[in-house]
Design a protein around this nucleic acid. Structure first.
Lengths: 255, 255
DNA sequence: CTTAAAAGGGTACGGTGTACACAGTTGGTG
DNA sequence: CACCAACTGTGTACACCGTACCCTTTTAAG
């Protein structure tokens, strides 16, 4: 079915405690045989290998060689597990901005790092929605991005935050199309054959109906898989920021 | 749990047949007591009222006064139902572009129409991912948008498609943040109290740790709920398009 | 009337998340 | 040391899910 999960059900404050928690152990009982890190890492591995729908409490626990209910000693439920998975993979983009020397380079690098993340973990397209729980890695990424766009002169703090949210949102939104296109490109047997060849005949018929003259008149390659819609949109977005920064620098009307 | 669904499991070509199908009845058997439209409308109503996780085959069938298995006479499975729900709500944005007189107005209107759709049907944030099945309403929206951006002079067909994908992707990506912020604003009791007040203490502690100096130094209102990040980013994006169109019109360097 | 096709739907299977009760382990305290 | 409170591990059970299978009922064609 695919069931992109997260959001809604889970206890947010408990998620945050787990994300930021010090992990201090109580002194009394037996030592735990598992760690939160191991659980999350296992869940991520399962999701990477078999997709998000394979991630169940039973499956993860089996992978760890324990009973299903053991996991509930470490986290309150599956929703929190997904929150933790999400923050964990965000650690991968840690050093992506190091070489950026301008805000434009930084935002470009951040966007491509995010996109790469979606390609490495396509299941992120199914989590990730509707409840932005901020873990340490997410906050660190935010801090670093913030550090690299301080040279956007004349923008208020609110606007700087808007810039980051905008870029991140853009990437998240377009990633679906892009990840899908790339998978179709070189996955060889499944996506293009089953997806586009499934779409094509019906859509071709719709085009032939004359109800959609403009779409029918488009170049055939307009919907080709290898068009870099992502890069195009990002460039436009950054150009827009550029215009904003320029206007704030005082030369509103030089033309 | 929330389980944003769709994608992966379903039979795409069967979904398309249902979306585009003429609904021609076979002559032999008894008349069907249900229609695809009624099923989809019921599912949408349930999702609107109680969220996507309330949409189950059993629940929808109960709402229709039939047995669960009856639905399978009309569609192959739940994945297809979600595809149909998605296309159905897209019909709501039908006339959104009518008054637009320039490509900028059109894209602005299209973006806001999409955003409004997400507010009316927040569960769209949970479907919608990873498998863009094109139904008649989606194609009609595409056609209309295409009609309204023909005045972007000098852009290739590929680029026009990129423009639309970019705007739609941007809206989809930022909608999460925006929908959540607005819900927090005027839902009164649930989201802000349970979500941000849940986030605040932990994050405040993180800020106080000194590890995130730039974030800690931000104005307090930088993360306020009423900031229009959506409008800001959209404006920048459209400005970027504006620059592109201007450059293609020949006056590259007038300044 | 006969018959084949289609619709309706009950039952059942294998899966899910997780509440609950209980057993086993540990370390602080008297 | 004995004891016990605190803690971990987990088997069982429940409610729910999507849906395969199969049988009954309705319908129209031959």
């Amino acid at each position: 079915m695919t069931t992109s999960e997260s959001s809604g059900g889970g206890d947010v404050s408990r998620s945050l405690e787990l994300l930021w928690g010090t992990g201090e152990r109580p002194t009394r009982g037996p030592k735990p045989g598992l760690t939160l890190e191991r659980i999350v890492a296992t869940a991520v591995a399962v999701a990477d290998a078999e997709g998000l729908e394979a991630v169940s409490m039973r499956r993860v626990s089996t992978e760890l060689g324990t009973g299903a209910m053991s996991l509930y000693r470490y986290l309150p439920g599956k929703a929190e597990l997904l929150d933790l998975m999400l923050d964990q993979v965000q650690a991968e983009g840690e050093g992506a901005l190091e070489e950026a020397r301008t805000w434009r380079e930084a935002l470009h690098a951040a966007a491509h790092a995010s996109l790469a993340l979606y390609h490495r973990h396509p299941w992120l397209l199914h989590v990730n929605q509707a409840r932005p729980v901020m873990g340490p890695h997410a906050v660190r990424a935010l801090e670093q991005t913030l550090a690299h766009i301080q040279d956007m002169e004349g923008l208020s703090d609110q606007e700087l935050v808007s810039v980051i949210i905008t870029v991140e949102g853009y990437v998240t939104g377009v990633a679906r199309t892009h990840v899908h296109a790339v998978e179709a490109q070189h996955s060889g047997a499944m996506s293009p054959e089953e997806f586009w060849q499934a779409q094509t005949p019906v859509l071709a018929q719709a085009m032939a109906s004359g109800s959609y003259p403009l779409m029918a008149a488009l170049d055939e390659d307009a919907f080709a898989g290898d068009v870099d819609h992502f890069g195009f949109g990002l460039r436009c977005l950054l150009d827009g920021f550029e215009a904003l920064v320029a206007s704030r620098s005082g030369r509103l009307d030089a033309g």
